[in-house]
């Protein structure tokens, strides 16, 4: 990603125009680098051909880890390390262990999933964003096409983007 630094940007004002533009641009054989939006646009994953994220699986696995840790901790502490008779209950009595097990499952699942999300999306404090256009976080949608990844001339790419309903077509170099 770092080696290619020349982009053509199509700027769109409307999310519905953007969605049909993505289809047009992809149909004409141009590979889109990425699309940037001020808010989540529904249907954009399918339009760009992105696979579904596997974050739900990560959340489930972290949840499983939480359940295991919580049960192991309680059983070991109250059942083996220092058994005590509390209210005449068994040393290892599952019913009273449920609340803490549930809470730790939720805690570790949530924290683990969010940490995974931060890592895979490379979100971290003091990271300098590679902003394609300053108006992305305001109201503009930006489609970026990487010139090095396409065998089509810059002029042809610009023509297709212009024809797809973009309000502006710009160059961007990093």
């Amino acid at each position: 990603m770092e080696s290619n630094k020349n982009f053509v940007l199509g700027i769109y004002n409307d999310e519905d125009v953007l969605l049909s533009a993505i289809k047009q641009v992809r149909d004409s054989g141009i590979k889109i680098h990425e699309v940037y939006s001020p808010f989540p646009v529904h249907g954009i994953d399918e339009a760009l051909g992105y696979k579904r994220t596997r974050l739900p699986i990560a959340a489930f696995l972290f949840g499983l880890l939480g359940t295991t840790l919580a049960l192991t901790m309680q059983i070991w502490m109250l059942g083996y390390d220092w058994p005590m008779i509390i209210g005449g209950k068994n040393f290892i009595s599952f019913a009273p262990f449920i609340p803490v097990t549930f809470e730790l499952t939720v805690l570790i699942s949530a924290l683990g999933m969010v940490a995974t999300f931060m890592i895979v999306s490379d979100l971290k404090p003091y990271k300098k964003p590679r902003l394609m256009d300053i108006r992305i976080t305001d109201d503009k949608h930006v489609m970026a096409v990487d010139l090095a990844k396409n065998n089509i001339t810059k002029e042809d790419i610009k023509k297709v983007i212009q024809g797809s309903g973009a309000s502006e077509v710009n160059d961007k170099n990093f």
Binding site: E34, F39, Y50, T53, L55, P129
Partner: peptide, 26 residues
């Protein structure tokens, strides 16, 4: 610093929505 280098990429938005939905579920 607070915005964590957010750039509005569609891939990140898609993951973000999924995270928000699962966090809501939890």
């Amino acid at each position: 610093a607070l915005s964590f280098g957010w750039d509005g990429a569609a891939k990140t938005w898609s993951r973000y929505e999924s995270v928000a939905l699962i966090l809501a579920g939890l």
